[in-house]
């Protein structure tokens, strides 16, 4: 894929803004590192959400503030919330997502890479709903939505919904289901950049 110099699809902030719209009022949410951190800035006014982020920093070690009603807890409790199924929703980044929901987001498996996993494996194993925010393709233009992940997995069949610069896509038993297109993007444009079957938006019969 060539870079035409024309900006197509959503910016990183717009992707975060779009995902934030789908976070239900009253949810306990964990935000991953990168674009997911930006989601916190876009929770609609009036929606009350309690962040499960760990002096006063988030998971990306960026400084954050507390809101009235916040609580501090130690790390084993933090992950008991996660492992014990008490967190409603998690927003994570991705290297690859497969059409069966497999997620790879911690390692490219390159022999010279320093492996680092953080809490990603705990989150996908313990949180009920996993949202993924990612660019649709890598900087080189390779699709990140694939039939089968080639990178080491973070978890099997865990992703529920994917927010990219081009579209919102659900992971269903039948594979990737297009839910919403970004402005100026059509089905063919997204399908060409998706390395797995992409079910079109269901039209009224």
């Amino acid at each position: 894929m060539t870079d035409t110099g024309v900006s197509i699809g959503l910016s990183r902030d717009e992707m975060a803004q779009r995902a934030a719209l789908d976070i239900p009022d009253g949810s306990y949410v964990n935000l991953g590192i990168g674009i997911p951190e930006r989601v916190a800035s876009y929770i609609p006014e009036g929606r009350e959400v309690i962040y499960g982020d760990p002096e006063l920093i988030n998971a990306g070690k960026r400084q954050v503030t507390t809101v009235p009603g916040a609580a501090f807890f130690h790390h084993a409790d933090s992950f008991a919330m996660i492992r014990g199924g008490h967190i409603d929703l998690c927003v994570l980044g991705a290297l690859q997502v497969a059409s069966n929901g497999d997620l790879a987001n911690w390692s490219t498996g390159a022999p010279d890479a320093i492996p680092a996993v953080g809490g990603a494996m705990d989150l996908v194993a313990g949180v009920k709903t996993i949202y993924v925010i990612t660019q649709h393709c890598t900087r080189r233009g390779d699709p990140k939505l694939v039939e089968r992940c080639t990178y080491p997995l973070t978890g099997q069949a865990v992703a529920d919904r994917i927010y990219t610069d081009l579209a919102v896509i659900d992971v269903t038993p039948d594979g990737f289901q297009l839910v919403e297109l970004s402005p100026g993007v059509d089905y063919d444009y997204v399908a060409e950049r998706t390395a797995a079957k992409l079910l079109p938006i269901a039209t009224d019969k």
């Binding site: 130690h74 992950f79 996660i82 492992r83 494996m121 705990d122 989150l123 194993a125 313990g126 099997q156």
Partner: peptide, 26 residues
């Protein structure tokens, strides 16, 4: 994995020699 690390330390401190977790399966 971070949660497993925290729980392994908690377990160690609580006299629990080992535990099962779904984290890292597959």
């Amino acid at each position: 994995p971070q949660g497993t690390l925290a729980e392994r330390i908690r377990a160690g401190g609580a006299g629990v020699p080992a535990f099962y977790t779904a984290t890292s399966v597959g």
